[in-house]
Structure formats: structure tokens, C-alpha cells
Amino acid sequence: MLTQEPVVTQQTAARSVWGVVRFVYPFVVVALIWETALRLGWVQSVSLPAPSQIAAEFWRLAVTQGVLWEHFSASFYRLAVGYFLAVGIGVTVGALLSLSPLLRGLFEPVLSLLVSVPTIAWLPVLLITMGLGDRTVITTVFLGGFFAITYNTMRGIEMVPRNQILAAREMGVNGAHLFFAVLLPGSLVSLITGLRLGIGYAWRALVGGEMLAAMIEWGIGKMVFQARFFNNVSIMFVGILLIGLSGYLLDRTFLRWLEMATVERWGMVRRR
């Protein structure tokens, strides 16, 4: 098995290069068609600028002015704080709910209701109670991740096969040891689903929160929202495309690696 590793890695590398090409070329094709159509005067458009204009705007924001990175770092700071709070608290609460029938009976109905509330619906409440600054945006991010993570942690622990738990208990394993050695790893399939959903929701919530929290200066959502004052649609598109790309990469990178290193390696889900 060990001797096969390098071959597998090479294949994976080749596959991932091919994967990037396959992912990118439709964008290139659409951009070329759109650019051509505008230049030859087949269509007139105010709301959708030419790809070359968007690219120029990107260059200005990223290199000439350099403000893009300021926006990005502000956004990622809020995402990181809110999301890690959501992971820590969500996993803990989800575990408690799955282990205590009393707590579960009390909170599960509430949770199943709140899990389907779009996070942005919380914003007006937060703007009143927490103000118009960073705290509100971070709390929005937290709420975005929290419900999905809590719910999926709870479900995951419940779905650990009964016989695996009994087998461990017969070995004399109980309490916290049973939780960390059996219930937690056994629930990882669902837990990782929760982490992935959570980061997606948290990212969407972040952008919405940044648009509506008036007191913050920086943030990728802020950048898009403020561009309307200058009537600069190109900035909006730079923002929209980067928001999409970031959200995609957040999902495809570290959580995907976690998934490959754990549940796929252990055969708990089919390899993708």
C-alpha cells in the first residue's frame, strides 16, 4: 500500500490541474462572448460591464490602490471570529442536546424552527441590540454557522451505530471517554456536513451584515454596497465575483481536506 502512494499523489495532482482548467474555461468563454458582443455594439449594457472593465477595476483595487486587501482582511477577521465561536459553541450545544433527553425535548423544536430562518432576518434585531458595528456583523456570522453546526452535531451523534457504542461500553468505556473516543469520531460525517453548511451560511451572513452595519468602514460586502454611491457597477462585480470565489474556496479547501483525511479515508462515506 505504501509503495503506491507517490503514484496516487501524481495522479491526484494531474487530476486537480485538469480540474482547475475545467472549472475556469466556461468563465473564459462567457467573458469572451460578452466582451465581443459589447465591443461590436450588438448589445448595450449599463448593469453588466465588460469583462475588461471589471478586470481593470480589479487591478486598480488590488494593485494601484491596494484597498481590496484591507476589505478582505476585515471580512476574514469577522468570519474567523464568528465561525470559530459557532464551531465551539455549536458542537458543544449539539453534543449536550444529543446526550440529554431532557434538554433535547426542550430545545429541539426551537432549534428545528430556527435552523430554517435565514440569518439575515436576525439583522434588524441585532442592529438594535448590538449597534451598527463589528459586534453585530460577527454575531450575524456566528448565528449563520451556529444552527447548522448544532443541528448536524446532534444528528450525527444520534446516528452513531448502537452496536459500536455497546461494543465500547462492554470494554468498560464510559462517560467522557466514550464521547471523545466513539461518539465524536462516529458522528464526523454529519458533523462535517454541519461545518460545511455552517461556513456557507456564515459567509453569506457576513456579506449581508457588512452591507447593513453602517458603522463599519471595511469589508468586502461594504465595498460592494458602497459602490452604489459612485454608480460604479464594475466594483460591484469585482466584489460579487470575489465573494463567490471565496465562498467556493472556503468550502473546497480546508473542510474538503478534513473530509478526505477522515470520513473518506475511513470509508464512512463514498469517495468523491
Partner: peptide, 13 residues
């Protein structure tokens, strides 16, 4: 006591 199940109940991780 040691227990052996029909579905093995091994820890997949």
C-alpha cells in the same frame, strides 16, 4: 465480558 456482533461493530476510524 467480550461481545461479538453480527454486524461486527468495528470502529471505522
Amino acid at each position: 465480558r467480550g461481545f461479538v456482533f453480527q454486524d461486527y461493530a468495528l470502529f471505522p476510524w
